[in-house]
Write a protein that binds this DNA or RNA. Structure first.
Lengths: 298, 298
DNA sequence: GGGTCCATGTACAGAATTGTACAACGGCTT
DNA sequence: AAGCCGTTGTACAATTCTGTACATGGACCC
């Protein structure tokens, strides 16, 4: 069985320092720990590695033989240290952010602005609306509408997204009464995604009838609506900026979705992850009116 | 701070195996442990080292960079492994045995015989009669007259050494009454070593008088006695084989010393240490009569 | 010779790590 | 579609490791 590599690091420190106390200081552990680790290594290797002189430890001939190899390990470990030093201390590198399509589109729309502030960061914006946790390492940051009950996840509230009914600009809406609207064709999610915001509201509005055009993500719904496929409940930050769409009525008070920024506690400490978090928080604060459907287009 | 070197070993196993389960098997740990150790390394290095595909882990570009250095560490570790394989599995190498002078002389006398049975072992027989424990790594094996109350020490009884009064062959002992013997000059230990076997007995025998020739180890006493310096209480295994000495009276029933073979529990498992232990035990069993003063010289 | 400082060894309490057990998921086979 | 297998994630109990505190020993200084 290979010895514990880290015990070799302790061995090296004792060989260099000559005393348990000096090695302990270098390694930032206690002196009994150094003694134990060296004994454990000696037991595993099957030879004494040190002779005990009155004032110091000196390597035995076996210990001397191992020193060269251990120093080779140290050299490689230092190379790794130098490489990783360029990873955790600076605000550069890649940050992967995952959000459902509509929010991903929002982020993507402003990403050029974000990167102008953080030029050394590369964004990866992934669209995903399935519930996921960061432990599966799908992303460094998630924007989600629920906070998962998971250990190690830190959540930060970004804001509340409002929803409204939209149609293509040239879509004929003759009478805006609920009954008249309910009778028109609609665009919405399929049965597997009824939990998406606004879907149950819409079915109630229409007396339980399914939307005539169905899809499984917001962009599909968005495109079908723009093409005159029917009415759709869309988030305002998706519908309002699109001049090909028009609002039909106001913001639906009963339909909203809180937006949460999720990060694994371990990654939050990384400068580049924190920088992106701060930038995303700032973006949502700046665009709060858009998010809440309070941008009135003429 | 340097990452834990052993976490790099885990990283390497996951990079090679592709799954937590395979890496766990190779490392002989559980799969949650592999996951934790890799996460700990990622946190310390400040970068993700693996992407998660549906069926396996693949190194990220950062992970690929670290692989070369980690493989260099593995190469050095394998070298250490090969070296140490020649240490713990075979019955060769050096075994250091420590005993007080008289017993060390006994061992030395028979060491040629011992080595004829264990030709690939090199003996180091150190004389020392100060109480010591094996943790100070003064020896691999100790022969002592008391068992120290220390953790980790395994004791094995070798036998009981008997003592008698000896004089040089030409030393004139006109009358063998206690009074006449007590009046003669004696050889013995100095005041710092009164706890050595036979010393207090001798002082009681002589009404509290100190020996006229004093030393601090058995060999000095032995030599002084052989030179006609006086009477001495010596272990029988030292006195009887020496044709320059003669017994004066029989074995002294009140004076004896149990002999214990002491070893650190960890070292007992080493084949060469165990072989020497067995050989020493056998030696003491074979020479039990000598030890107990039952060899009658004509 | 006594006092001080440094170092090591050891016992025990606390912290950290690991293994076990179980749930969940995805792929494959029937 | 159902069942099975392999894999991963997680919670909790068990185990291991570490640090602290203290005792002991040796060297040095006064």
């Amino acid at each position: 069985m290979d010895p514990n590599w880290d015990d070799l690091r302790v061995f090296l420190a004792l060989a260099r320092g000559g005393t348990l106390t000096k090695a302990a200081k270098v390694l930032d552990v206690s002196h009994p720990t150094v003694a134990r680790r060296v004994h454990a290594l000696e037991k595993q290797i099957g030879a004494r590695l040190f002779d005990r002189l009155p004032d110091r430890f000196v390597p035995t001939s076996v210990g001397e033989e191992l020193l060269a190899d251990t120093e080779a390990m140290e050299k490689a470990a230092h190379s790794i240290h130098r490489r990783s030093a360029g990873l955790s201390d600076t605000v550069s590198g890649t940050v992967r952010l995952s959000a459902e399509e509509a929010t991903a589109a929002l982020i993507a729309r402003f990403s050029a602005g974000l990167r102008s502030k953080l030029p050394q960061i590369e964004f990866e914006v992934a669209t995903s609306h399935t519930p996921a946790n960061l432990s599966k390492r799908e992303a460094d940051l998630l924007i989600r509408e629920q906070v998962p009950e998971l250990g190690g996840i830190v959540a930060r509230k970004l804001g509340r997204a409002a929803y409204a009914i939209y149609a293509a600009c040239d879509f004929q809406v003759r009478r805006a009464t609920p009954a008249a609207l309910a009778a028109l064709p609609w665009v919405g999610f399929d049965d597997d995604h009824l939990r998406m915001p606004g879907q149950r509201w819409m079915q109630d509005y229409r007396g339980g009838r399914r939307p005539e055009i169905r899809g499984n993500n917001w962009l599909v719904l968005h495109e079908a609506t723009r093409s005159g496929g029917g009415l759709a409940v869309l988030p305002c930050h998706l519908g309002d900026p699109d001049t090909a769409l028009k609002r039909v009525g106001g913001v639906i008070p009963e339909v909203f979705a809180d937006q949460w920024l999720l990060v694994h506690r371990d990654l939050r400490a990384l400068p580049r992850v924190r920088a992106v978090m701060d930038a995303v928080v700032e973006l949502f604060q700046r665009e709060r009116a858009l998010l809440e459907g309070r941008i009135v287009r003429t």
